[in-house]
Every structure is written in structure tokens, then in C-alpha cells.
Design a protein around this nucleic acid. Structure first.
Lengths: 168, 168
DNA sequence: ATATCTGCAAATGTTTTGCACTTTT
DNA sequence: AAAAGTGCAAAACATTTGCAGATAT
């Protein structure tokens, strides 16, 4: 459990600079939030993060986590995604290359991929229309072989259980 | 005002067949919903549609519109999108070719585009990973020239007003 | 007759906010 | 001291649901 200390320092510094530039305050909760967010593996929601922090004994409210996540995203430390299930998800962005996502409609596994050709074509499309590309969101909804061939996928049970407990 | 009558008939028939196949009932509200949905220009939300129907004197509840939209999507008459602003949007799908979207982050204008090369590359990526492509969502967030050059865009006022009145 | 629908109001689940109190600057 | 942040509980928001009466098969 732990992030590369160099990355963490870089992140804390970058965030401190961001806060200074906006005349916002460097509070204990915000520093803690940076650390906790970087420790999250893969994609996480506000509640995931809050739970993880509470589990580790931090005293932060969910409201502060929400407010902090917006800030971390604005500062470029995190990237936010909308996977069309009603929950906003975040992932570390600082030391990671850009990528898009494939997500299995059955087991909800998320796989990252990069495709420079697609990126280039997106630029071309935008330019053709006289616009400027600001950002993009590409998600491929797929079915994984586990589910197709064996009607079984370890991840699915976990997911459907979560779905039932916490559906929208 | 008014859809091509041939398209409307085709849609009503297709929907009737869909309902029959699922042993669901062909109610007046559902038929009305098909007509109203096809009349909507571009992308619309559940509330847009409900308002339009009420304006035209129909007596439908918002709940029924929500239930109906799911059905229309399942039947393939409509396509649903998540443009990451917290509202689900729909558009006519029956007589329209597949396309993706470019949306201006300032004025919220939506422009459709098609790019067969991107589609092909998506297939390739998925195949490489041993998955099967089920569906995809590609949205390019752009800035339009109107806003960039003149800091003005007719559409923007409309949008920001809506934002304030109806924000999430 | 029976299964499904509808409208309504209430519930849901995520995210945001107002406010009184703390903490940074 | 002033400005901004925090936790809490309450609000906001889009969407879903339980139920009782209405409608389609």
C-alpha cells in the first residue's frame, strides 16, 4: 500500500502550487486527499475514496471529498470519467499516459487501451469542422470471452452484488 | 412540425410488433409517445419530451415518459446518450445512420459526425484484446469558432440560462 | 378475467449547498 | 482580522418505484 514517494511529492507540490495560484488554502484534509487518491488502484468513486480514508482512520467528510475531487481534477492530478452508470469515477492522471477505456457490459471489468491512430483521426474530424478539440471521451462497451464462452466471470458476481446493494 | 408519415407508420408498426413480442400493451400513451419522440428535433431529455407533449395537450405523466423512453430505446426506435452533464438524452434512431457527437463546451451545440476509419479501428482494438464490441460511445468536447473568436455565440445564452434554472 | 399500465406521490441515490464553527493566511 | 474550509444535515436533482385505480388483451 503506497505510492512511489517521488510521485507523491510531485503531486503534493503540484497541488500546493495550484492552490496558491487560486488563493485557496492548503488544509490537512486536502493533503490527505491527495495521498489517498493516489493510493487508489484504478478507477474509484467519491464514496470509494471516502470509505478508504475513513478505514485508514482519517477524519474527512464525504462533502469534503466531493469538493476535493473537483479540485484535484481541475489541478490535473486526477481525470474524471462518466461510464454511464450514474457514478462519476476518477483515476490518477499525473504520471499516466492518456488512454481510453473498454468496459465489459457483463462483468464491468475496465481495460485501458491506447490508439494513436484514433486520436489522430479525432483531431482531423474536429479540424474539418473548424472546431478545436478540447477533450474527448471514448468508451467501448464490450463482452469479455469469459462471459461469452463460459457464462461465467469471477468479476461478475462481485458486480451484480454491488448493483443490487447500491443500484440507481 | 411533423414527421414523414411513412417513417411514423414504420415506427408505430415496429413498436407495436415489439410490444406484442414482449406481451406488453399498446396503450394510447405509448403510441402518442412514439409520435412525440419522432417529432423532437435533435437530442432531447425525458423532461423536454414530457413538456412538448403537455404543450400539445397530451395527458401523460413524467413517470410514463421515463418508462416509455426505456422501451423505445429497447425497441431500437431511439438511441440514448450520456453527454456527461447528468441528463440522459435521446435521439431518433430508426431512419438515421450511426454517428458520433461533437459537443461545444461553451455553447453546448451538438454536431454529429461519421468516421468509418475510427469505427474500423475500434473493432480492431477490441479484437486484439479478445473481446467483442457491443456498443461504443465517442464524444468529442470542442470549442466552436464563434466562442473562440468573438467570445459570442447565440446558443450560449440559451444554455447558460438553462444551466442556472436547472442545474445539478 | 387477468395481466399490464398509468398517475401520483414518495423513495432513491448521487452530488451540492447553507450555515455555524475552524483553520489558514 | 479576513478569507476560506470543514462537517453536518438538509436540499437538489434526475430517475425509479409502490400502490390503487384504469385499460388492454
Amino acid at each position: 500500500m503506497g505510492v512511489d514517494p517521488a510521485i507523491l511529492d510531485q503531486a503534493l507540490d503540484a497541488f500546493a502550487a495550484f492552490l496558491r495560484s487560486k488563493r485557496l488554502k492548503a488544509t490537512e484534509q486536502r493533503r490527505t486527499l491527495v495521498r489517498a487518491a493516489l493510493e487508489q488502484p484504478g478507477h474509484f468513486t467519491a464514496e470509494n475514496l471516502h470509505r478508504a480514508m475513513v478505514r485508514e482512520g482519517e477524519r474527512v467528510s464525504l462533502a469534503t471529498v466531493y469538493r476535493g475531487l473537483s479540485l484535484l481534477e481541475e489541478a490535473g492530478l486526477l481525470e474524471g470519467h462518466d461510464f454511464a452508470d450514474g457514478l462519476r469515477r476518477y483515476e490518477r492522471a499525473l504520471d499516466r499516459e492518456h488512454h481510453d477505456h473498454m468496459i465489459c457490459v457483463d462483468c464491468r471489468a475496465v481495460v485501458e487501451f491506447q490508439n494513436p491512430q484514433i486520436e489522430r483521426l479525432q483531431e482531423a474530424v474536429v479540424k474539418e469542422h473548424g472546431f478545436a478539440l478540447h477533450d474527448h471521451s471514448l468508451t467501448l462497451f464490450v463482452t469479455c470471452p469469459g462471459w461469452r464462452e463460459r457464462k461465467a466471470c469471477e468479476r461478475r458476481d462481485q458486480w451484480t452484488r454491488r448493483q443490487r446493494a447500491n443500484r440507481r
